[in-house]
Amino acid sequence: MKGRLSLYLLPLLLLPLVLAACGDKDVLQPEQYDLSGTLHGDWGTNPSLRLALVGTGIPNVFTNDSTYAQNVVKVNDTTRRFGLDLPRFPNLAGVYQVIAFDDRNNNAKYDVSEPVARNRLWLIYSPADATTPAVNLPAEFPWAAGEEAIPELNVKSGWNVYNRAEKISPTNPRSAEKITGYDIYH
């Protein structure tokens, strides 16, 4: 009888653990996210800063998503540290950037009228080791419509970082599971 009672109590004892596993993800320090960096610049008084993954999948499917786990921590009036989790498997292979924006209408989505900042680092997602074709940005990128986002590149499976400010080399683009130093200037 004692053994059976334990068997019946086991689910009740495990219930708190199951419920805890289903809860929201804790807010982490910026460096603990998949992508982290520093946001520099004056955003005015009490901005509602968010990060979004924007980009174009192949073939030309526009992405504007700020629903990934993130944290922006104020250091002083012109400097903030940030972190953002990247999707493990984006909907499409493609070229993306993380942008910072002041979500003035608090809809948790970047809208063209909102102040935005970005850098010259592109994130390329590939489901396999491959040579990606050159990609031009679609009209949905008002700050760079028609601009060549990336030339033809050799990439590895998963996330890759391409620095447009540097020449293509064996280390540019580079494969990356964790991306640090993704600094953005406003």
Score class of each variant (00 low, 15 high):
2 K>H: 14
2 K>D: 08
7 L>H: 07
8 Y>W: 13
10 L>K: 10
10 L>W: 06
10 L>N: 08
13 L>F: 04
13 L>A: 13
15 L>F: 13
17 L>R: 10
17 L>M: 14
20 A>T: 12
20 A>S: 12
21 A>P: 02
21 A>E: 09
22 C>E: 11
32 Q>L: 14
32 Q>K: 15
35 L>R: 04
36 S>Q: 04
38 T>R: 10
41 G>A: 03
43 W>N: 09
45 T>G: 05
49 L>P: 03
55 G>N: 06
55 G>E: 03
55 G>W: 02
59 P>M: 12
59 P>W: 08
63 T>A: 00
63 T>P: 00
66 S>F: 01
70 Q>T: 06
71 N>R: 05
71 N>F: 02
73 V>F: 08
74 K>Q: 10
75 V>Q: 04
76 N>Y: 03
77 D>L: 07
81 R>M: 10
82 F>Y: 14
88 R>P: 02
91 N>S: 09
92 L>D: 15
92 L>G: 11
93 A>Q: 14
95 V>D: 07
101 F>G: 05
101 F>V: 03
110 Y>L: 08
114 E>K: 08
115 P>G: 08
124 I>K: 03
127 P>R: 07
127 P>H: 07
128 A>G: 07
129 D>T: 15
132 T>D: 01
132 T>I: 13
135 V>G: 09
135 V>M: 12
140 E>I: 01
140 E>Q: 14
140 E>S: 12
144 A>E: 02
146 G>Q: 06
146 G>E: 01
148 E>W: 00
149 A>P: 05
149 A>F: 01
149 A>G: 13
151 P>L: 11
152 E>C: 06
156 K>A: 14
159 W>S: 05
161 V>T: 09
161 V>W: 02
168 I>Q: 14
169 S>P: 05
171 T>G: 11
171 T>M: 08
171 T>R: 10
172 N>W: 00
173 P>E: 07
180 T>F: 04
181 G>R: 02
182 Y>S: 08
185 Y>W: 06
